[in-house]
Amino acid sequence: MSVFIIRRLLQSVVVIWVMSLLVFGGVYLIGDPIDMLINPEADQEDIDAAIRALGLDKPIHEQYWFFLINALKGDLGSSFIFNEPALQLILARMPATMELAFASLFISIFFGIPLGMWAGLHPESIAGRSIMTGSILGFSLPSFWVGIMFIMFFAVILGVLPSGGRAETTEFLGMQVSFLSWDGLSHILLPAVNLALFKLSLVIRLSRAGTQEVIHQDYIKFARAKGVSEKRVILVHVLKNILIPVVTILGLEFGSVIAFAVVTETVFAWPGMGKLIIESIDQLDRPVIVAYLMIIVFMFIVINLVVDILYSVLDPRVRLQDVKA
């Protein structure tokens, strides 16, 4: 078990190192780092100072070392536009994105699993078929278009929900959150559902397939033969079996939720990291782009690591065997 975790940790360190090489290569070798990292509107004196500060006059391996040390210290350059360290700028926007991402994961799990199980238990029923058709649409429709439709229907035609933005935040367990007020909930509802659509469809499909596989297993029949109530058969025996793969895959997909938040945040004017990166690309604020990239890569690797370890803890069959990494 601990051997497995250590091996997995080492792997992650290697991947992060490879990614740092790639980013360094992209910024310093392919692109012109002076263009990429120094504000083009600065005068020559500032540029020279920045070149020295960034070590761009040094040989390439020293430059890489410099980049690595800076990155480890959390210094990923300063935004041209806001004149703030890029990392801080992104971290300031992160809670909003996280709130949105967790809200949509919540929706995916708490609606996706029951809907998927229903469709798996009643595959021939009208409701079951509708759920599946809905999940196919959720997969194939571009999410920005669905978001626009949401705004048009709920904000423009019905006028019941706001068309975008985030409500006033309040402090909750040391974090700035908006979902505690009614106003906050009404603001987060549409973007969260929009961001959840793809994962919701995924969860529905996984739960349905899992339910259909598990329900025909002998151990379900045996549970019934013991006289266990149908409710318990489904809520304990079936659910526990499908929960592990569903949660694992959802965990692995968390990074892609953060990435797709770029679209949802733009559609709903949600002030998170995704909206920031789009604005930065628009304004060629490259240090922010580089910083965003590094942060999201880092997040991906950490998520994969955590999910792998959690999986081995959750599934008793995996836990005791020596897992091949």
Partner: peptide
């Protein structure tokens, strides 16, 4: 009645117990 007055034992013991419980 099931499990109380009438019980059943299945063919494949590998499959009759729920693996995650």
């Amino acid at each position: 009645l099931r499990g109380r007055r009438i019980a059943m034992i299945f063919q494949d013991p590998m499959m009759t117990l729920n693996p995650v419980l």
